[in-house]
Simulated assay, not measured.
Amino acid sequence: MKQRTFGRTGHTVSEIGFGAWAIGGAWGDVSKEDAKAALHASLDAGVTFIDTADVYGDGRSEQLIAEVLKERGGDKPYVATKLGRRLSPHVAEGYTRQNLTAFVERSLTNLDTDCLDLVQLHCPPPAVYYQQEVFGYMDDLVAAGKIRHYGVSVEKVEEALKAIEYPNVQSVQIIYNLFRQRPAALFFAEAKKRQVGVIARVPLSSGLLTGKMSATTTFAADDHRAFNRNGEAFDKGETFSGVPYDVALSVVEDIRKLVPANASMAEFALRWILMEDAVSTVIPGARNAAQAQANSRASALPALPAETMDALRELYRNRIAQYVHHSW
């Protein structure tokens, strides 16, 4: 497993991380045994970065991570969590010192630790990016020894660019995949200039880029791919990257023709993301050990040829950009 520098934090992290949303909830049923097996398999493969959030299964994801790390002992991976989405309603006015501190305290308990490695504002309302005091509260939590670093998880490129104007924002988590290529146009250059870590999420476009879905694929009622295609529960772009399902399936068939014989489509899609050196780590999810092992293999793939990269950019420009480029 190859390692990359994580911004200015002084840490290096595995270029393939573990996205722990699926083991928390909103992806159908994942048993505790499968969830823990997925975590163990990732860590066995050399993963040193885990991303979770306090709302993933209402703390279940954080608690499972704590259990696995306690079972393993030894050196611990870098664990990132998120806060803010527990607010109801989720409004900028809720980002108070009192609320942020309470969320951090809860995650400290869930993760069974004295200090959180990284806390990210969890796709906050746009107004939060213009409230300097919120970032001051995060500075104070660092000073108090409750968190080591903080960053933001964003929906839009514009939010990412605004967030990194704050000098102590150490990382930005953003959707970046074959169906969401806009971050590479401007944001990545700015992140590199400021030495900000970049976490690429939704790398397989909610499973579309595994190449295993079809028009007849069905999803459990509690799986966001069944109930959030039009943004009914949260931002539409978090489900299938915001691309209409039928359009995405058609483009997947064109992508399939470019996948080399020595790789699965999922590995290929992850390796495409790793071609961008501004990306610190990619966080595919895994519901079981086999998926976790498959994700980790992407780190070993050779660089993609220039003609393949050109073809993938062309597919995005001609088939996908009209649906997503100016929305996120």
Rank of each mutant, 00 (worst) to 15 (best):
K2F: 11
F6M: 02
R8S: 08
T9H: 05
T12S: 01
T12F: 01
T12P: 03
E15L: 03
G19H: 01
A20N: 03
A20Q: 04
G25F: 08
A26M: 15
V30G: 03
S31C: 02
S31A: 04
A35G: 11
A35M: 03
A38F: 06
L39C: 04
L39M: 04
A45Y: 00
T48D: 00
I50H: 02
T52S: 06
V55D: 14
V55E: 11
D58V: 13
G59C: 11
G59I: 10
E62S: 05
V68F: 04
L69T: 02
E71S: 09
R72V: 04
R72T: 04
R72H: 05
G73P: 05
P77R: 00
Y78K: 01
G84D: 01
S88D: 14
S88F: 13
H90I: 12
V91M: 13
E93N: 10
Y95K: 05
Q98G: 07
E105T: 07
S107Q: 01
L108W: 07
L111H: 03
D112L: 10
L116G: 00
V119Y: 00
C123P: 10
P126K: 11
A127Q: 13
Y130H: 15
Y130L: 15
M138E: 08
A143Y: 03
G145Q: 09
G145I: 08
K146D: 10
I147Q: 04
H149L: 03
S153V: 12
V154M: 15
E155Q: 14
V157M: 13
E159A: 14
L161Y: 09
E165W: 10
Y166H: 11
P167E: 00
Q173K: 00
I174M: 08
I175P: 13
L178K: 14
P183I: 12
F188T: 04
F188R: 00
Q195C: 13
V196A: 07
G197M: 02
R201M: 01
V202Y: 05
V202C: 05
S206L: 08
G211D: 11
K212P: 12
A215F: 12
D222L: 14
D222S: 13
D222K: 09
H224G: 15
H224W: 15
G231Y: 05
G231A: 09
G231N: 07
E232I: 13
F234W: 14
E238L: 15
A248M: 15
A248E: 13
V251P: 08
D254C: 05
I255W: 09
I255A: 07
K257V: 12
A261R: 05
S264R: 01
M265R: 02
E267S: 10
A269D: 02
W272L: 11
W272E: 10
D277W: 07
A278N: 05
A278R: 04
V279W: 01
T281D: 03
P284F: 06
A286M: 05
A286N: 04
N288I: 06
Q293E: 09
N295C: 06
P302H: 00
A303G: 09
P305A: 04
E307H: 12
T308C: 13
A311D: 07
L312V: 14
L312I: 11
R313S: 15
E314D: 14
Y316T: 05
Y323F: 15
V324M: 08
V324W: 06
S327Q: 14
